[in-house]
Design a protein around this nucleic acid. Structure first.
Lengths: 121, 121
DNA sequence: ATTCGATATGTTTAACCGTACATAACGAAT
DNA sequence: ATTCGTTATGTACGGTTAAACATATCGAAT
């Protein structure tokens, strides 16, 4: 299975309310948190400052009225973070939207690319 | 026919090359130019400075290797602008992608909305 | 030659946004 | 009590971006 190309193609930004949106950045962040188990590690993996990562998460938690990311401080594992059931649902839904949208516009995307000049880097 | 909601919903950003992208802003700009016949008028209609509008157009013209917008200076009509055949194609393709993507993700979008708290503005 | 609104372009200013830096709290384990 | 890496939060700095402002040019018509 060939991995999805994340540098080019269609990017989806879901605007739930005028001030509430979910795009590739937040989705990737959720995914990284799921994989790494920590906000800090996710941020590092994405080249994003911890503060920014935390801010985005806080924003999502507030927007959805319920946390998408749960956190723990201190302790044996020195604290960490993970996705709540809602967080997992949101991530899954977003990825599915990406897939479906990508499939739906494949033809037009190809046609659009044909209009581009030959690349000679 | 109910007009499309442009404040919420899915927004599509097509990344052709790492530095070449087409999103809602440029698409709307192309459409406004088609309708108004002028860069300046299009900018005014969108609350966008002439300079920014012109810059975006120039960017597109360069990116696609051929102009999407043609312009004339001076003369009886004091100059103006319009879409080239390529420009029309690009706009049409983008709108079609929006439509198809929107249709494709309708279900997930609804599910995602259900996760949002009731809005009490 | 003047006038019109539009294109074309440069320069300066202001605002925003994210990073960098700094600090405190956390709590299980030792 | 100390230590660990992390969460949590505030403040200052820097870079990017768009807006604001300023000209210059265009060319048909008068």
């Amino acid at each position: 299975m060939k991995p999805r190309n994340r540098t080019t193609g269609a990017r989806l930004r879901i605007v739930l309310e005028p001030e509430i949106a979910l795009g590739p950045g937040k989705a990737d962040l959720l995914e990284e948190i799921e994989q790494t188990g920590s906000i800090a590690a996710a941020g590092r993996a994405m080249g994003m400052s911890y503060k920014r990562a935390w801010s985005l998460i806080e924003e999502m938690n507030v927007d959805f009225g319920t946390p998408l990311v749960h956190t723990t401080k201190g302790g044996k594992s020195y604290g960490g973070a993970g996705l709540t059931p809602t967080g997992k649902k949101v991530l899954t839904l977003y990825r599915r939207m990406e897939d479906k949208a990508g499939d739906a516009i494949r033809g037009e995307l190809k046609a659009l690319r044909k209009l581009l000049p030959d690349i000679a880097d």
